[in-house]
Design a protein around this nucleic acid. Sequence first.
DNA 1: AATGAATGAGTATTCATTCAT
DNA 2: AATGAATGAATACTCATTCAT
Lengths: 216, 216, 216, 216
Amino acid sequence: MSNKEFSRSEDSKNRILLAAAEIFSHKGLDGARVDDIARSAEINKRMIYHYFGSKENLYVEVLRHNYNKINDLGQETYIPGDDPMENAVRALRSYFYFLASDEQFVRLVSWEALNRGRFGSKVLPQFLELTQANLGEIIHEGIEKGVFRADLDIRQVLLSIHSLCLVYFTRRELVQHMWSRDMMSEDMLESRLQHVIDFVFNGILTHREDCVNDSN
Amino acid sequence: MSNKEFSRSEDSKNRILLAAAEIFSHKGLDGARVDDIARSAEINKRMIYHYFGSKENLYVEVLRHNYNKINDLGQETYIPGDDPMENAVRALRSYFYFLASDEQFVRLVSWEALNRGRFGSKVLPQFLELTQANLGEIIHEGIEKGVFRADLDIRQVLLSIHSLCLVYFTRRELVQHMWSRDMMSEDMLESRLQHVIDFVFNGILTHREDCVNDSN
Amino acid sequence: MSNKEFSRSEDSKNRILLAAAEIFSHKGLDGARVDDIARSAEINKRMIYHYFGSKENLYVEVLRHNYNKINDLGQETYIPGDDPMENAVRALRSYFYFLASDEQFVRLVSWEALNRGRFGSKVLPQFLELTQANLGEIIHEGIEKGVFRADLDIRQVLLSIHSLCLVYFTRRELVQHMWSRDMMSEDMLESRLQHVIDFVFNGILTHREDCVNDSN
Amino acid sequence: MSNKEFSRSEDSKNRILLAAAEIFSHKGLDGARVDDIARSAEINKRMIYHYFGSKENLYVEVLRHNYNKINDLGQETYIPGDDPMENAVRALRSYFYFLASDEQFVRLVSWEALNRGRFGSKVLPQFLELTQANLGEIIHEGIEKGVFRADLDIRQVLLSIHSLCLVYFTRRELVQHMWSRDMMSEDMLESRLQHVIDFVFNGILTHREDCVNDSN
DNA sequence: AATGAATGAGTATTCATTCAT
DNA sequence: AATGAATGAATACTCATTCAT
């Protein structure tokens, strides 16, 4: 009984976690209601306390579960000997589409930022590090190989790339309202990504193009 | 008699607004407590309802009050005949330091984004437009004068610039934890701004510099 | 100054009383709001406390003021030597139209009944006595003259007449809904009154008619 | 298991309803306090909101519950072929003693009348109709059989009978004060009922009984 | 392992009343 | 005589959590 793939209890616990993740991501810790989570998980409220002890604790578990998603990310995009630019583009694309695909993650991370890590940040590993360790190395390599400018502060660059990807999703509603386009359509996603890549490599000044165009 | 500098009631209303802004910005709408606001404003809770009707309404007024801050911003930085780059740098600097100086604004806007404009976005003008109308025109002008690349999608550029400035503040805690420096110190602020400016104009690729160097 | 017809203060006091009467009559003591009364009287709330001391006290004054209206009633309808039936009809008509004309009175008296005289009945004279002292004597006289049945319990008759008139007004809404006619129109009022008179004198049995018809 | 006589929740819900009925009937919607109801029902206040949603809603349920009592009334008093007068007396007696036995009902209905059906009348069927459909038919039948006068407006008669019964209870306190007798004693109740019956059938004029044409 | 019912401490909101001028 | 601003105590309603089974 206990060694089925998923015991009944594992299943319940999971249902709670998924329902909670969804609701916390939409409403935040303070806005979420334990009753709503229970209803959405189709489970008795009491079970939440049985498995997780408290709302706060459940929230932390939801965070942990989401932060783990990052581990699945980006490792496979790095091809050791390859051109740093190629590697960077792959990493960037991988990160961008990860954010695009997982609204829940993006929102949870944002709530957490606003709550100044009331819970998550103290208990959990800093996810930014995880995210960008990879990209950090690529850039470092690119600088060493002379492909990227030597005067760059890698941390600033990482933060900037992070920003360029993230805000497209965190301010989606507002921007959507201004652009009146479906910002999550394939087209729009891809053009944002292209813009970001271009922006990261070229900036906005004209004379660049003279140099870069031919190599492009 | 009634038009003294500030009537007593104006003063009370203001105290409430300021206290509320501070608390809402820290805890969000759901996390804030009316009692805390009253205590912080050193006023009877009843007056909050007298002047604002409800917690929600008070929140909307706080948003309105904050969004208005943008109007005071950036207009004076634009010098008509000047070099678009100079104008852009000034606008960027002005926006960056506005965000740096007003944590409250940054946080309120972020809560609002997460709440998908539960209140603000319906009632209030889209603040992003206001913010960047200015910068938008500068870039447009820059493109026409051939200073900026003609193939730019201005909206994407605006969003990118917005992102590069904003995230430094919205993720301050997390980044601070990684960089272990006081991110709000004059030094750090200025180097972030320099990075952003440089990033916007030059991107990260090496060869640019070769072209740009002479003009630099 | 103080011996004008109505000093300013008298006027304010009156405005409060009238506004309060209207609001108490509509919403009852518990449902009425001091703020509403002040607003309706176009006076500062503080004045209510100045003149009346408390909401409860104001309510009592409103009751007193209304109960006094009864004094203006019915005395003039009684013609000493006249046929008791004529006198009774006149008294009945007078009472019925008094109720018809003064919804406020009817409602206040009804609230008071439901509140089991939480205030009014202990402080104020029993208005039923006042109302019907007159009619009581007429019936008494009618019995002595052999016009009315000798076996009547006058108190029961008075209560019955009172009921027949009153309920038409106290249940107006409900009845109106069933009858779908404007129950306060001249027509409807008069036919109710005629019914009551007829009912009081004749009851509903047929055989009466044999006797009465021809004389009619 | 779940269909025991009364599940625990049914029992709680019922306790709330009964306590609320009692308190609402005494104090009205505005005068009643949710805390009092909870205390009286010996239950946690929260359960009131769990089962009924709001004070107002609970009030409506109390009304519904009370209005339903009418359904249990009067049907069995009607004997098809019987003398209309007998049937009428039975119906009248049944209604009169129903009111006598259920102060709660009488008071709730009265509050509702004063509140002009703020809630009840919109949500619930018109109870007057229900009450008197029965009596209405009896009178109709009586008229057809020539027992009751043909010129009667049945609706007026119904309202009159209603009035004669009702006011004895709605103005109980005031009348009691005047009559100084226990108006709810068996004796007094029965004599009021006899008076009403007599009054309805005979009115107050003398000649009727003898069929006294000549004195007219 | 699971559940329906219950709870106490909180939380927004309202109200009659009073203060300062 | 009058007012605008302020207050404390209540009041309706909510929420995370626990009890009994």
